[in-house]
């Protein structure tokens, strides 16, 4: 064989292997839901658009998924962004204030809000790459101050938005599916192209896997990290737009509240290790949908929205434990001991 051929089969098999467990977990939740919560999988149509619990999951899961996509890149570089919730609030505040109070037309206000999110991400990235702060500490600063900034923007009020275009983002549907899903699809495609058609994906994974070796191989480590945080900020801002659209207002106290854990969890479930390195964008989307299904299931099982975080936290810990090599070794030892005990 003179001409080496690309091995698409190998690559596809690798992707399938990486996504196997997230998909199995998602299926498990859906099955449990179908059994215990009547109507969990029912889809109907009203006025030509699909409705039902799965569609709701898709709609609200898309918001988490968009944040998770940005978070995936940051985690892949070996970092973490705790400020996404605060950035969601800031972006929602900027959108609402620009549209409702300043009278800025929405085609200008929306990019402006995303830009603000990008700036917030760049700020985090600067703290990480220039000041060399640990990512947790660096993003903690904005986590503390972010909601204050958002309230400063809105003047502490809940600013309502009556712009129909903004309303359509979260509450409209196209081709039968919610617009948020199409937005997610667009963000995913854009990021996938950016990451896979350029070398960014490779360089991000390298930096996260071994940053000393990456630097010696000539990888522009700082720019790569900066890029990841900027993307994360932009994604959080898009989620802020969606949030603002859902409730037709910017409620900075509640917008994006506790979103950071959902996003981190979605990334971890999706198969990206918290230590950085290889990452899977599609895995994070599956992880986000899984989280949203779980939230929705708990809701349908009459678990109140306030209690719902507790079982979610259990899932987080379980998933992290399963990823932990120490835990695996521990379980392996126990299993072997039991085998030895039963001759």
């Amino acid at each position: 064989m003179a001409e080496p051929r690309p091995h698409p089969g190998v690559a596809l098999a690798a992707i399938a292997r990486d996504l196997l467990w997230p998909l199995v977990a998602l299926a498990a939740i859906l099955v449990v839901g179908a059994i215990f919560a009547p109507g969990f999988l029912t889809i109907g149509t009203i006025d030509g658009r699909l409705v039902g619990t799965p569609i709701d999951i898709l709609n609200h899961g898309s918001k988490v998924a968009i944040v998770a996509l940005g978070m995936t890149l940051v985690i892949a570089t070996g970092g973490v962004d705790l400020s996404v919730g605060a950035v969601v609030a800031i972006a929602a505040a900027v959108t609402a204030t620009l549209v409702s109070e300043q009278g800025v037309p929405w085609p200008l206000a929306v990019p402006a809000a995303v830009l603000v999110g990008t700036m917030a991400g760049l700020w985090n990235g600067m703290l990480v790459t220039v000041l060399r702060l640990q990512p947790i500490v660096a993003t903690l600063v904005l986590m503390v101050a972010g909601r204050g900034i958002a309230q400063l923007v809105t003047g502490g009020l809940i600013v309502t938005v009556r712009e129909p275009a903004i309303d359509l983002i979260g509450n409209g549907a196209s081709v039968g599916l919610p617009n948020t899903f199409w937005l997610l699809a667009a963000v995913f495609l854009g990021l996938a192209l950016l990451v896979r058609r350029t070398a960014l994906g490779l360089l991000i994974a390298c930096v996260g896997d071994n940053d000393s070796a990456s630097r010696l191989a000539g990888v522009p480590e700082r720019s790569v990290r900066l890029f990841a945080y900027a993307v994360c900020g932009s994604c959080a801002a898009i989620a802020g737009l969606i949030d603002c659209s859902y409730i037709r207002a910017a409620d900075v106290n509640n917008a994006g509240q506790l979103l950071e854990l959902d996003a981190i969890l979605a990334v971890v479930i999706g198969g990206t290790a918290l230590t950085g390195g290889r990452f899977s964008l599609i895995g994070s989307i599956i992880g986000a949908m899984l989280m949203q299904s779980l939230t929705r299931l708990l809701y349908m099982l009459d678990v109140s929205a306030e209690i719902a975080p507790a079982p979610k936290a259990m899932v987080v810990l379980a998933v992290c434990l399963l990823q932990s090599s120490v835990f695996r070794a521990f379980v392996g030892r126990v299993a072997r001991r039991q085998e030895a005990g039963t001759p």
Binding site: E306, P311, C320
Partner: peptide, 8 residues
């Protein structure tokens, strides 16, 4: 996670 658990 502990924060979510305790809050829940």
């Amino acid at each position: 996670a502990g924060m979510f658990l305790a809050r829940g």
